[in-house]
Every structure is written in structure tokens, then in C-alpha cells.
Design a protein around this nucleic acid. Structure first.
Lengths: 201, 201
DNA sequence: AGTGTGTGCAAGTAACTACTTGCTTCCATC
DNA sequence: GATGGAAGCAAGTAGTTACTTGCACACACT
């Protein structure tokens, strides 16, 4: 079953480069170093192959866990956001292409969205815990705060290569900026100032 | 020159639905209610047509102005963000497709980005004015705060149709949430509380 | 009345697409 | 050593694509 894996991996790569229409069976077969006919022996159609490749990718997306009992929100969030920001950036080409397929192949797009929903839920629940533990105050909406932070990471990861003017700071600094802004926004900005001074801003 | 305009408009519409590869000259000509040959009499190639259509669109994108001397940041930002949020949402299909073309047709993608950079600059300068006027405090980064708010609007506009679970609030409420969070983040949360109670949160 | 200019229409070209068929070759297992 | 499955290879099918050519028509100006 080595060939099947090679085909799935190649399909993901070519899809990320060229999208659904541009990912021809010939290109995929070449990328997998396999005869084009073999592709159709493993998958009934190109659609089936791409779908399987995207589903496999979405399943493999790792969701980092945030601590069940928050102690240092700033460093915890920076670690978590840093990880997901890097993942988003690494996969930005694939994400752009999958989003572009939304009108024509909604199922392809939906595969990728599932992972995003999972990650967002993890953050929402962490923010709820922060509020319950008294580490954050105010009457802000949990879903909105989640989407604000994740939206910033998402737009940054996708836009920083295409609009360098808008992102003059490094990826590392970006995460710190967004986390600090969010912590201020949810009334958790002045907790644990000791850890705050330690990292460069 | 009516036909030329019809072709540009049709090209933009078909491109938003199907992307570069899917926007065939036949489809565009049909959408413009024009013979396919006529398309090639006005534009040397399909590439040239799409490029012109996207350039025209990027040029037409309206940039709302933020007041030179801020008085009520919350309502001023809500009005400004509400407008751009609606515009982003209206054009989300086009934006998704243009972003997907980044690898294969960077110039197409870049056309759209120019407008985004313009809009972002307007917000950055407003935030700077807020800080100078003493309406916002803290040592936050202006570009980061800009990108945080615009990233939230951008991700919301593009994701709310494909991931309704993540956006349980209305578009109107979304803008208020993000603006309130940002104002808190930049130490401008408790100014003009009168106007704050007026709108539903 | 004549002369462009812009358009429609029918047809064709050359390249590419997903997918198929028939045959050969390798290689592990019985 | 025979058998079966998995792979390669060459070729072909039917459809689509961007783009071209040649000709006819209709309208505007002189």
C-alpha cells in the first residue's frame, strides 16, 4: 500500500500548488513517481483521490491542548497560538486553494474547515475557563474573542507573504502582539507581569 | 465601448464563481451576452481580460475615511468596520478565488491586495491619532492592532458562510464585538460610555 | 450610393483533459 | 516452477480549451 500513500501525498502537494482544476492526474502521477494508469487503479476518479487526500489531511491536523487549569495565560496562549500560527503559515497555499474551491467543490472546502472548528473550540473553552477562574473580566463574548484572535492569526498567516507591507514584524512577534492585545481586551492584561517582561516585544 | 464594459463585468463575475481556470472564454462571453470571438477582438488574450477586470475592480474599491480628529472612537470605528466588513462579505467569493491564484498568477492576486493595503493604512493612521489624542493608552503596536481588527473582519467575512458554527452572532453584532474588544485592547474601552449603552451588545 | 467599423456565425486548429484498453513485466507466494 | 496480483507502457477515446479564420450582416458617416 506504499503507492496509495505516495499518491495521496502527491495529490495534496499538487492540489496546494494548482488547485482542483490545475491538479491534473498526470501531474499527480508524476509527483508520486507512478504511472498515470496506476492512479486510476487505486482511485476510481480524480475527485475521489483529491477528496481522500484532503480528508486525510484534515484528520491529521494536530490540535494542541490548552491547560485545563490556566496558570499563566500569556505564556500558555503564546505557545498555543505560536504553534497554530506556524501550522497555518506552513499550509497557507493549501488553505488558499481549498477555500477557493468552496463554490465548486464545497465538500473539499468543508474537509479543511472541520479542523479549524476543532481548534477554535479548544480556544473558546480555555477563554471560558479564564473567565471562571477570575483571570479575565468584563462582559465580552467568548466566541467573538476566539474569532478575533484566530482571525488575526489566520489573516496574518495567509497575508504576510502576499502583503509584506502590512506585516513589518516577525511571525514570532506577531503572536505576542495578538495575544497581548487579546489579553488586554478580555481584561487579563495585567496578570503575571513578571513573565511579560521576559520576552521581547 | 459598451461591449468592453460588459465583458469586464462578466469576467469579474465568472472569475468569482469559477476562478482563473474555470472562467472559460465561452462562459465569460455568454455572461456578457456577446459572441466569444468578440471577446478576442477587445482583449488579446483571456489573461489580459482577467487582469484588466481585476485591476478595474481593485481601483473601484472604496476606502471609507476615518475622521481626522477622533471624537467618539467606538461609533466611528463601528461605522467604518461595518462598511468594510459588508464589502468584504459581498466580495468574499472573488477574494477567495483571487487568493487561490497567488501561486500561479501572482499579479492577479496582487491587484486585490493593493486595496487591502490602502484600507489598512487608513485604520493604522486613525489608531495613531487616537493614541496622540490620549484617547488610547498603552504600548501596543499600531500595525499589530490594525491587523488584529482587520484580520478579525477578514476571517469573519470569509468564514461565516463556510463555518456557521464558529459565528453564532450576526454580522452587525460581530463588528461591535470586534471593535469593543479592540478598544479594550488599546486602552480605549471606557471612553464615551454613553454611546456604548445605546447599541445592543 | 458607397465605405468603414463593429458584431455575429460556422468552422477549424492544436493542445490538453480524465479516463480506458490491451499487453507486458516483475515479484512474491504456493 | 506455476499462479496471481500489482505495476508499467503505448495507444486511443471523447470532450474541452484558447484562439483563429473567413464571411455575412447591420448600422453610421460622407
Amino acid at each position: 500500500m506504499d503507492v496509495r500513500e505516495a499518491l495521496l501525498e502527491a495529490a495534496l502537494k499538487v492540489f496546494a500548488e494548482a488547485g482542483m482544476r490545475g491538479a491534473t492526474t498526470r501531474k499527480i502521477a508524476q509527483a508520486a513517481d507512478v504511472n498515470e494508469v496506476t492512479l486510476f487503479r487505486h482511485f476510481r476518479s480524480k475527485d475521489e483521490l483529491i477528496e481522500a487526500a484532503l480528508a486525510g489531511f484534515a484528520q491529521r491536523v494536530e490540535t494542541r491542548v490548552l491547560p485545563p487549569t490556566p496558570t499563566d495565560p500569556r505564556s500558555e496562549l503564546i505557545a498555543w497560538c505560536g504553534f497554530h500560527h506556524r501550522e497555518l503559515h506552513k499550509r497557507s497555499a493549501l488553505i488558499r486553494k481549498a477555500m477557493g474551491e468552496h463554490e465548486e467543490h464545497p465538500s473539499h472546502c468543508a474537509q479543511g474547515m472541520r479542523a479549524s472548528v476543532r481548534v477554535a473550540r479548544e480556544l473558546t473553552e480555555y477563554l471560558r475557563r479564564l473567565k471562571q477562574a477570575g483571570l479575565a473580566t468584563g462582559d465580552w463574548d467568548e466566541a467573538a474573542a476566539t474569532n478575533m484572535l484566530m482571525g488575526a492569526l489566520f489573516a496574518d498567516a495567509l497575508g504576510r507573504d502576499t502583503m509584506p507591507d502590512r506585516y513589518p514584524y516577525s511571525m514570532r512577534a506577531a503572536v505576542q502582539h495578538y495575544v497581548d492585545l487579546l489579553l488586554n481586551a478580555i481584561g487579563a492584561g495585567d496578570v503575571s507581569p513578571a513573565s511579560r517582561g521576559r520576552t521581547s516585544r
